[in-house]
Nucleic acid binder design. Sequence first.
DNA 1: CCGCCCCACAAACTAATGTTCGGCACCAAT
DNA 2: ATTGGTGCCGAACATTAGTTTGTGGGGCGG
Lengths: 217, 217
Amino acid sequence: MPPKKNLRPRQQQILDFIGQFLDENGIPPTVRDIQRGCSISSTSVVDYNLRLMERDGYLKRRSEVARGIELLDETGLPVANGAARVQIVGSIAAGEPIPAFSSEGVDSAAEFDIVEVRPDLKKRHGTLYALSVKGTSMIDALIDDGDVVVIKPTNTARNGEMVVAWLKAEEEATLKKFFREGDQVRLQPANSTMDPIYVAADNVEVKGRVVEVLRQF
Amino acid sequence: MPPKKNLRPRQQQILDFIGQFLDENGIPPTVRDIQRGCSISSTSVVDYNLRLMERDGYLKRRSEVARGIELLDETGLPVANGAARVQIVGSIAAGEPIPAFSSEGVDSAAEFDIVEVRPDLKKRHGTLYALSVKGTSMIDALIDDGDVVVIKPTNTARNGEMVVAWLKAEEEATLKKFFREGDQVRLQPANSTMDPIYVAADNVEVKGRVVEVLRQF
DNA sequence: CCGCCCCACAAACTAATGTTCGGCACCAAT
DNA sequence: ATTGGTGCCGAACATTAGTTTGTGGGGCGG
């Protein structure tokens, strides 16, 4: 594959636009889409630059096919279109703090751990992150030690939903089922051998909601 | 969302082709692609059926746009492009046959049900299919009624793996943990209230292995 | 200043692709 | 037999989208 070269501003602009268009529409843009999107006055300018970028290995064009543009990654392979990667930002268990939420560096020592999730999840929920589950406090909800839960950040929760709850006073995060009961909140582990936790409503902050559980086989 | 209706054979054929084309090419097929792929003699037939399928909520067509076909999932949301789609070919439970494996038509009464899986799964395992789980026979393995298991077709299994086992004599398929014990095979439900099944090794055919469990939240 | 190259422009052209139309065969209800 | 609906066919038609062509401006070395 050809060596990477620095892109001209216009080419960078086109590249960005293609990526954005792909995200928004699911199919590649036409030359005229790019033209409009980048405020270029002629399709031939787009064609010209696409040709250069193809030569330099940034993308591939299937000729004779409408919307035949594919982006390539740094290895020259086509970019999986809906590739939804989610970062595992830490681990969570009853009573243990989550590093990412603790007062020290939020993003600093983040582990480099990424899981792929079903593309439709990201489409439906937007930004997501993941936590590795320690312990068996949610075993009755079919979440085991070592599983990875995918979390959608949100401040609110309906009763019965599985949430990441942040206890302000204790500075702890925990994975529980959420039940609002007056000015109290019951955090219910899904494990018949464990008791629920009752806390004042203003001491609880919902950090996110579980949207998916991943398990290795 | 529009009500679900049974698809005509031709429409099922077209739907399958679109999915396959999407997998292979990353972009939706044109009317003429479908025409060729399904051996239809006229584009108008394709258009005719696409129109019906759009009316019935199986897909969406963006008019005025080339390759504007999008598949919709059962909730009416667009399926991410280039995503790994797996077809749910039937349901499975202890003691009940799986339609797709029974002696009658393998592909005939195929339901319109497709789930998305993590892209890396398909990359790692190749072709996959999915089954909807009925009953709680695998509850201790954290597989609940209504979950969907993703299966990798294979003839062999190691002890302890969760497999789809086909009992030749009974003509039944069942989801169990597999243990080879001499010339017998123990099929162990992961439910403490249920007993294992012992069958002769030559009466058991391993159809596939569970690689993923999907659950709605 | 000249010629040259890179880049951009607009318009025209061709190919690809979606859409429509009239007609035919089959089947079921009238 | 007649009527109406479904499914299919082939071809023409309309629109979208990729490609080509001729042109012009601006920087740069001669």
